[in-house]
Design a protein around this nucleic acid. Sequence first.
DNA 1: CTACTCCACAACCAAACAGTAATATTCCGC
DNA 2: GCGGAATATTACTGTTTGGTTGTGGAGTAG
Lengths: 110, 110
Amino acid sequence: MKSALANDTMIDEVSCLFGALGDASRLKILRALLDAKEPLSQGGVAEVAGLSQANASKHLACLVRVGLVTRNPEGNTVYFSPILPLVSELCDLVCGHVSDRAKASYRALR
Amino acid sequence: MKSALANDTMIDEVSCLFGALGDASRLKILRALLDAKEPLSQGGVAEVAGLSQANASKHLACLVRVGLVTRNPEGNTVYFSPILPLVSELCDLVCGHVSDRAKASYRALR
DNA sequence: CTACTCCACAACCAAACAGTAATATTCCGC
DNA sequence: GCGGAATATTACTGTTTGGTTGTGGAGTAG
């Protein structure tokens, strides 16, 4: 059977989603949300991830837009949560591959 | 336990890998490699994906650099293959999520 | 050696993007 | 109402990046 990348609109959507994951600041945000077992306010995210307020706002908007994070306003503050298990599975897959590659290249040097 | 995004070098590596996936041309290359059940030459990739020769060369180099594609020269031509099952799993995960979201937003309009 | 094919690389341009600073806006407590 | 806290948005800047064109090198057949 054909790959899941059926048509070109799917290609565009998927590239947007992967593109959202392809930035260190946004990954720090996702790490903050994954490590905290509860929703975080935007301020909390910014503090844990080490980003300015405006910067965190922009990156969170991006993650919400592509559907990796949910946005939940309560009164004055907005709480964000990662989409599970999608986000953790993606990170685990890629992290596993990265450390495997690192191990292999380490062994190759001995 | 903590997320797999342990430290900042891991964040950088992972963002590079996701960034490589976050481009429509590179996804078309991966689709070409996944659909063809055999290694493709660079020219074959460029033709199937609809890219110029130089462009395909650059994108393929990017995919090889982050470890999503293997490079296998034979005589004058270079053959490329996707890293399985990593690439197909990542695409399937994200494609599934994208079509689920599309279905949900469709239902929400009725 | 010549001609041809396949690929890599450099230089360049235009578009996209991350980050910042400053300024709204919305909500809450007083 | 007023002031403050939390978030969104705008304008701007510097950097990055995708695409093209052109060129050069490596391999192969004649």
